[in-house]
């Protein structure tokens, strides 16, 4: 044994593989990556501060109860009135008409893709759906105003130029791919054994789809609906272009009405002076909209967790 070997055995000399001391470069990179991750936290904080601070100033001037329960929204009129219910009702009506479209047809598309379509058909339909999902909302807005509403008028509906039903239906069509793709993912996660079992008992394709696959994928389907509802609530440009900017409570879908998001955009476009009450309405309505979508998001996560079927 050489002295070198002895030293190695005793542990006096380190092998030349290099020591693993603290690597400052490594720590620096880790810190840099953490800073990147913090941008998203700052975004959240920024959104909350940006909304809440001017909203508080707004509610110093306008009674919160009047805001929530008031049925007249007229910030520019004298006497002005700040009841947000007209904006909320228009938002919910648009969402309702969108849901009338995306709830059945989004699910139908998902069932077809997952249970009925042959692989060749799927290979064509899936990218086509992605194209539909990638079309900017301003294009749908153009379509609603310039094509769909005149089309409905031609077939005899007494629609105004700006109307709820045209805008809502187009929002619904826009959301079909969202619902279809999330629901189909959930259906794809249903194990093949369940389908095979049902077929072995003599079930038809219809029964397998409606009594096995849809119930098993239920949480995913509901999650897709809630996400779509949340998107419909926040949809701005289609509502602005096709449903107009008049704030009013109407249950006649042939009339137009301003949704929360459409009001925000219409006011943001105009150069309202910072600090004025009109400027602050943007934030009060924005906060209301934010709360609506946040509740939907939390609800959706909860629901999915609660009803999730876990397959091994």
């Amino acid at each position: 044994m050489s002295t070198r070997d002895v030293e190695l055995l005793r542990g006096d000399a380190r092998p030349s593989l290099g020591s693993s001391g603290r690597r400052w470069g490594e720590d620096g990179i880790r810190a840099l990556l953490l800073v990147c991750a913090c941008v998203s936290v700052l975004t959240t904080l920024g959104i909350i501060i940006a909304l809440v601070q001017p909203a508080i100033e707004f509610f110093r001037e306008v009674n919160l109860i009047d805001f929530i329960t008031g049925t007249r929204w007229a910030p520019l009129f004298k006497p002005s009135s700040f009841g947000v219910l007209p904006l909320i009702s228009a938002t919910l009506l648009l969402t309702f008409w969108a849901a009338v479209i995306f709830i059945p047809f989004g699910l139908g598309t998902a069932i077809f893709l997952s249970e009925y379509a042959r692989p060749g058909v799927r290979r064509v339909l899936k990218p086509a759906l992605e194209i539909l999902a990638g079309i900017p909302t301003v294009v749908f807005g153009f379509f609603a105003l310039v094509f769909f509403t005149p089309f409905l008028q031609d077939i005899g509906l007494g629609l105004e130029t700006f109307n709820i039903v045209g805008a809502g239906v187009v929002i619904g069509v826009m959301l079909i791919p969202t619902v279809a793709s999330i629901s189909e993912d959930a259906m794809a996660a249903v194990p093949q054994d369940l389908r095979a079992g049902a077929y072995a008992l003599g079930a038809t394709r219809f029964h397998v789809a409606t009594r096995v696959v849809v119930p098993s994928a239920f949480s995913g389907i509901i999650a897709s609906y809630i996400l779509a509802i949340s998107r419909a609530i926040g949809e701005t440009v289609i509502a602005l272009i096709a449903a107009g900017t008049i704030a009013r409570i109407t249950f006649n879908p042939e009339e137009g009405a301003a949704s929360m998001a459409a009001f925000i955009a219409a006011t943001g476009v105009g150069d309202v002076p910072t600090g004025s009450i009109e400027y602050k309405t943007i934030f009060a309505v924005g906060l209301t909209l934010f709360v609506f979508t946040l509740v939907m998001n939390i609800f959706s996560t909860r629901l999915v967790r609660r009803y999730r079927e876990v397959y091994e």
């Binding site: 909304l51 949809e235 925000i264 924005g286 909209l289 934010f290 939907m296």
Partner: peptide, 12 residues
């Protein structure tokens, strides 16, 4: 954040 409507980013 992925669920926040784009108009709210506009407000930000």
């Amino acid at each position: 954040l992925a669920g926040v409507p784009s108009i709210v980013y506009g407000i930000l």
